[in-house]
Each structure stands twice: as structure tokens, then as C-alpha cells.
């Protein structure tokens, strides 16, 4: 049985949304794999869920809020220490706003 592929344009859009680069070979493989997986999860449509509330999270109703008290967090130099690029004050990234 041959499986439906996810169109390569759709894969390209999803990769862009997810900020992922992929080689043409990877894109081909994703198109085939995802086509097959999406066909499989399609079976959920058979289930009658009229009037059924969605579950986003279990046990949330039992959780307590913590008190809003200021605590000592991670030291800045420690937080910055393993960043690929940083200066004394923060993380450094390539330009994303025109000067």
C-alpha cells in the first residue's frame, strides 16, 4: 500500500515555522515519513468526541500557587558562562534590527 506524502511545500513551510534547516534529502524523508504518520493519526477522526471536554493537563486542579516571594536566582555571570557569545551584561546574537 502506497502512502500519501506530505507536500514538499508544506514541509518547507513547517521547517521555516520551526526554525529548522534541512537538506533536500532530509526534506524528502520528512515528506514521506510525515505523510505516513499523519495518515495514521487520521484515525482519531473516527472517535465520537461530541461534547467531550479536552484534557490539556491532568491533576491541575490539585496544584497550589506558591507565595510570591523574591528569591536569589542564578548569578548572572554563571548564567552567561556557557553561552556561545556573551558580554558582561547579556547574550550576544547576530543583528536582527537594522541600525
Amino acid at each position: 500500500m502506497s502512502h500519501k506524502q506530505l507536500p514538499t511545500e508544506t514541509v518547507a513551510t513547517l521547517l521555516r515555522l520551526a526554525r529548522l534547516s534541512a537538506t533536500p534529502e532530509e526534506q524528502q524523508k520528512l515528506s514521506a515519513d510525515l505523510g505516513k504518520i499523519i495518515e495514521y493519526i487520521q484515525a482519531l477522526q473516527e472517535v465520537n468526541t461530541d461534547g467531550i471536554e479536552p484534557t490539556a493537563h491532568v491533576l491541575l486542579d490539585r496544584l497550589a500557587w506558591r507565595d510570591d516571594i523574591l528569591e536569589q536566582g542564578l548569578d548572572r555571570s554563571e548564567a552567561l558562562a556557557q553561552a556561545p557569545r556573551h558580554d558582561d551584561e547579556g547574550f550576544r546574537v547576530p543583528t536582527f534590527v537594522e541600525d
Binding site: L44, V47, T49, I52, E53, P54, T55, A56
Partner: peptide, 15 residues
């Protein structure tokens, strides 16, 4: 709606 919300509803049925 077709996938994520639907799956969350089926999750309720499994529970």
C-alpha cells in the same frame, strides 16, 4: 481543531 484539540478530547475518553 482536527488534530490537537481532537487528541485532547480523546485523551479525556482514555482517562
Amino acid at each position: 481543531d482536527a488534530y490537537y484539540r481532537k487528541a485532547q478530547q480523546v485523551r479525556t475518553l482514555i482517562r
